[in-house]
Design a protein around this nucleic acid. Structure first.
Lengths: 341, 341
DNA sequence: CTGTTAGCGCTTTCAC
DNA sequence: GTGAAAGCGCTAACAG
């Protein structure tokens, strides 16, 4: 049994440097000006010699500050989540925090489990990436009394900082674009609306935008992400119900856009030729699929970064009013939304 | 200033239950059989009442076991990494460990920083997802003396458990497939080989497989991921150098496949029509790009899961010989590798 | 069966 | 300037 050497402790350092733990602690905490150059040098030497690293465990225990931030993600395989994660991660680094990442896989029990876990590790705050999260799961989150910031979605009747997309503006831009390109029948497709504000806002702006244009049919439908058959039927019906008209579909998020593209492919309806298509969320493969898929790109990285800055502000004691930070999306035009015929 | 109520401690529970901390501790650690039903009930009651959760910090400090696993990822935006992460995450859950996730962004300094960080949080072991990791970064990892498992890649001259793909078999299957479909000029494309065993093995099996077939040109090239122009030139040259022959490209990983597809698109070379294409790593959009892209799918989730099981085995003290766990890939045939003409 | 006690590695009064 | 000593919340002997 190859036993690892036990880590050096602050006492080891003190002994080696022929001093007390207090001075070492002071050194570690940057109170260097209080130390004589000689002592400082001895401590430095001892630390290097022993390859000493202070234990965050002990530190956290003593000070109550762990410099840990909890992150709860509903579905890590969602590309949106990954980009956001990347931004959060960068912000953590910049601010000297460490991320405890939990993927709830959209299972309610897990979510509960992780919330307790984060709490037991004394995280100082949590960020919830609600993208793809079931509503029930999200609602349970209120229980946590930690500083918390939501990404993408609000919890109804729960005052909490939120960072996300300016949905009304984005949806307006997207819809307007399709109208300008001569589409006459528009279908707004989303996962079940529930009380998810994101979906509802996008939908509302969609209808509001269309309202001002005569001779345009606007409708919407809700479909579960993992029901390809239902989706296929929906799309076929929509297309057949509007013969002679230019039809277009707006998919309310990236995961759905993928499913829609697959369904259209099975139906042999080519986007940009027989039907228009526009999806929320940029996709790395958007340019490669057929004539390309027009997307509404969110500044995902910035959203993640901003969210973390916000939790930290709360952790540092900011008591300003609940803040809702909205970012603008950007329309990336590709073939799928070109004028038909 | 809305101050949060301080968390209840084990002493609070003991007091409320009118007993000592020891009994509470016993209760927490499942040594329930040693407690009288009455006492047990009182403790249960007190815990519920105070909403008590033991502090992992204190526990870790005392026992030296933090139940924390460090994960080092070079590039979290790589889809392969995400899938692996998902498997690791599931295994953690199953085994009662928590993940401390670090994304090094492929920066050497960061990697060093994180290694120290993980160590200071007393992680019990680390998993390194080397996919996309720079060699220099990987090499530095040897310093850590923690139980460690590598995913995808080995570190030259460093004995360490590895979990990954059976590269020789997979590359053989892929190459064979192209040969059977009548391709006569094959280009194996990878990022700079360096001493990355994964790339070298795939390349070797490629040549070994082709060797047995007469009248087939085999060549390979190395290209950096973020040099689209170089890639474009490379592909154009390759195609033009073999007039009248059926040409095919093998991309050694998913990130590269994306770049190749983009380059071919710019060159107006359509896969499955003017050129063959096959990529390692399954991509969610593979079926949507033109006639579809044939891929060699890795069991990413399983690889992640297995990796975590392996670190845990080491943590639990397994002293068996260094283990190399290889999984078989699966060829997903799509239009891009169909016989041309 | 149950409780007392002594630390885990660190920070922080409080004295010198 | 420096260090001794008292805990942070918990577990693990060791006694009853």
């Amino acid at each position: 049994m190859k036993t690892r050497p036990p880590r050096a402790t602050i006492s080891d350092v003190a002994r080696t440097a022929k001093t007390g733990k207090t001075s070492v602690s002071r050194y570690l905490n940057g109170e260097v000006n209080l130390l004589s150059p000689d002592l400082k040098a001895r401590i430095e030497q001892a630390i290097a010699e022993l390859n000493y690293r202070p234990s965050q465990m002990a530190r956290g225990l003593k000070r109550g500050r762990t410099r840990l931030i909890g992150l709860i993600i509903a579905d890590i395989t969602n590309p949106y989540s990954v980009d956001v994660l990347s931004g959060i991660e960068a912000a953590c680094r910049a601010q000297g925090f460490t991320l405890l990442m939990c993927n709830t896989n959209n299972e309610v029990d897990l979510e509960q489990h992780y919330l307790q876990l984060l709490s037991s590790y004394q995280v100082e705050g949590i960020v919830v990436n609600a993208v793809g999260m079931h509503e029930e799961v999200l609602n349970r989150l209120q229980q946590s009394m930690l500083p918390m910031v939501l990404i993408d979605r609000k919890i109804p009747d729960f005052a909490c900082d939120v960072v996300g997309l300016n949905n009304l503006e984005a949806s307006n831009i997207a819809t307007q674009h399709l109208l300008e390109n001569g589409y006459q029948a528009l279908l707004f497709l989303s996962e079940p609306l529930g009380s998810v504000n994101t979906r509802r806002e996008r939908l509302r702006a969609f209808y509001d935008t269309v309202k001002n244009t005569a001779h345009v049919q606007a409708e919407n439908a809700e479909v579960a992400l993992h029901q390809p058959d239902a989706l296929e039927t929906l799309l076929r019906d929509f297309h057949q119900r509007h013969p002679g008209k230019n039809c277009a579909v707006i998919a309310a998020n990236g995961a759905l856009t993928l499913q829609v593209a697959r369904a259209l492919q099975r139906l042999q309806l080519r986007w940009g030729e027989s039907i228009g298509l526009l999806g929320f969320d940029e996709l790395e493969w958007a340019a490669l699929a057929g004539v390309g898929i027009t997307t509404l790109k969110q500044p995902t990285w910035q959203i993640g970064y901003a969210a973390l800055e916000q939790v930290i502000a709360r952790i540092e004691g900011s008591e300003t009013a609940i803040r809702e930070q909205l970012f603008s999306g950007e329309l990336i035009v590709r073939g799928s939304s070109q004028p038909l015929r």
